[in-house]
Design a protein around this nucleic acid. Structure first.
Length: 442
RNA sequence: GGCCUCAUCGUCUAACGGUUAGGACAUUGCCUUCUCAAGGCAAGAAUCAGAGUUCGAUUCUCUGUGAGGUCACCA
């Protein structure tokens, strides 16, 4: 028994984009299976013909690959293709008197005459099961009544299909969200009826939204979809690291963990019982940490983004470096672009005369300083100007009085990187042009 | 409402029944600085309440309170 191969499952229902909460549930399954050298079977629960869509199935598979927590796709089954199997079990249950045909409780006008549903004959007993995370849980199943297990012989309902599939696929551990707890007694009843062994259960606490309720597309929007994060350029390593830390932690102060390390150290018994809030601030911080670890890749992505926006312009490495320091997620660049915070690196900025001078500095003084800078920029080498002369001037004549006007004249913004960085990116020629332009309008 | 589950800083969490209740994110302040960002340093911030067990309770028990989940011919 103890040496039995561990089999877990991913059973997504393709009725929507891959949900971040599901991703987390699958991640826990993944870590548990991998550390035990087990198998992960994959099953599309698409018995709801109305809502199941091919594109959703693809989205789930694609994002699973992106996260790097793939199941064993060779085991993939679709419940919609297994009605013969379910039928066999349903018939058997009926033959044994454990289920029976019944009048539909609410036949729609279009449902036609003579339609019958199949109900489970509830033995009305107490079910007690042990949960790896929560310990013993007991239910009285009487209140479940004789629940429906199939709409017809060919249309099983979720509970029946799940139990049959888990049994047939040899699933040993069911690791799923908290919201599955109340389904468990019902499923155990069916297991007992078809003679299936009881798998080991582990119910994970839910990942919640800021309002402490279950993350849902309807209430919380596109941020519940994994593809949202993928499209925004979050790194899969950061996502995994983040997701696993909501509800579990290694018991020490380390925050950054690779997937390989997690597989080694993960302990399902130490999973939290309390639901955890999805805190995007921490995700962003983690993402930045991972961007730093993947500096070259990240810089290439920044360059790509810039190339799209500023087609024919040269992209200075220092600019890439500057942006790299500023952002936490690649898509932050889109915001910078949208707000025009990068324009001045490529085009001459519009200046507001009132903003050129530092604090109480007079226009005359300001103009004078700019002219001195101009002299320095024109004479000597670019290197010397940038590294020594400009600094010396600023020391001598007042940093604010020299550097503020210079920085503003170059960027046209009250907030920007320092003038040394700007000059390095813009080059002497452009720097001189912008200073001259400012002197003229002053 | 019935049933089930849960309860440590704002958030994620740590703490063999004995700790000044620790860390991280966020926040605030200071340093650095012409501004912003980054970086460095520092600070504030929690055991839901009430009983009980115990020499001693964040930890064990009970009650209350609060929160969440679930109550489909959806999965």
């Amino acid at each position: 028994m103890e040496n039995q191969k561990i089999i877990v499952r991913y059973p997504p229902s393709p009725t929507g984009l891959f949900h971040i909460g599901n991703a987390r549930t699958f991640l826990f399954n993944y870590l548990f299976a991998k550390q035990n050298d087990g198998q992960i079977v994959f099953r599309l629960e698409d018995t709801d013909k109305e809502r199941s869509k091919e594109e959703y199935a693809n989205d789930i598979i694609e994002n699973l690959k992106w996260l790097g927590i793939e199941p064993d796709f060779s085991t993939m089954v679709k419940q919609s293709e297994r009605s013969e199997i379910y039928k066999k079990y349903i018939n058997k249950l009926i033959e044994e008197g454990k289920a029976y045909f019944a009048e539909p409780a609410f036949a729609e006008a279009t449902a036609g005459e003579g339609r019958k549903v199949i109900r489970f004959r509830n033995p009305n007993k107490k079910i007690k099961f042990n949960d790896l995370i929560r310990g013993d849980i007991e239910f009285d199943t009487t209140e479940l009544k004789d629940f429906v297990i199939a709409k017809s012989l060919d249309e099983p309902v979720y509970h029946l299909a799940v139990v049959v599939d888990d049994f047939e696929m040899g699933v040993t551990h069911i690791i799923r969200g908290d919201d599955g707890i109340s389904n468990t007694p019902r499923q155990i009843l069916i297991q007992e009826a078809i003679g299936a062994p009881r798998p080991i259960y582990a119910h994970l606490p839910l990942m919640l939204a800021e309002d402490k309720t279950k993350l849902s597309k309807r209430k919380h929007g596109e941020q519940v979809s994994v593809s949202f994060y993928k499209n925004a350029g979050y790194l899969p390593e950061a996502m995994i690291n983040f997701l696993v830390m909501v509800g579990w932690n290694p018991g020490n102060d380390q925050e950054i963990w690779s997937k390989e390390e997690l597989i080694k150290i993960f302990d399902i018994k130490k999973v939290q019982k309390k639901g955890g809030i999805f805190n995007i601030e921490k995700l962003r911080w983690l993402n930045k940490e991972y961007m730093r670890l993947q500096k070259n890749n990240t810089k290439n992505l920044i360059i790509e983004k810039l190339k799209v926006k500023f087609e024919n312009k040269k992209i200075h490495p220092k600019l890439v470096e500057t942006i790299f320091e500023k952002i936490e997620v690649i898509s932050d660049i889109d915001v910078l672009i949208e707000n025009g915070e990068l324009d001045y690196f490529f085009n001459k900025p519009e200046l507001e005369i009132d903003k050129i001078c530092w604090k109480n500095q007079s226009k005359e003084d300001c103009k004078q300083k700019l002219e001195k800078i101009l002299v320095l920029a024109k004479g000597g080498t670019f290197e010397d100007f940038l590294r020594c002369h400009l600094r010396e001037l600023a020391e001598k004549e007042g940093k604010g009085e020299v550097l503020w006007p210079l920085r503003y004249v170059l960027s046209g913004r009250e907030k920007s990187p320092d003038p040394f960085t700007l000059i390095e990116i813009l080059g002497v020629e452009e720097t001189i042009k912008r200073i001259q332009n400012a002197i003229q309008i002053l």
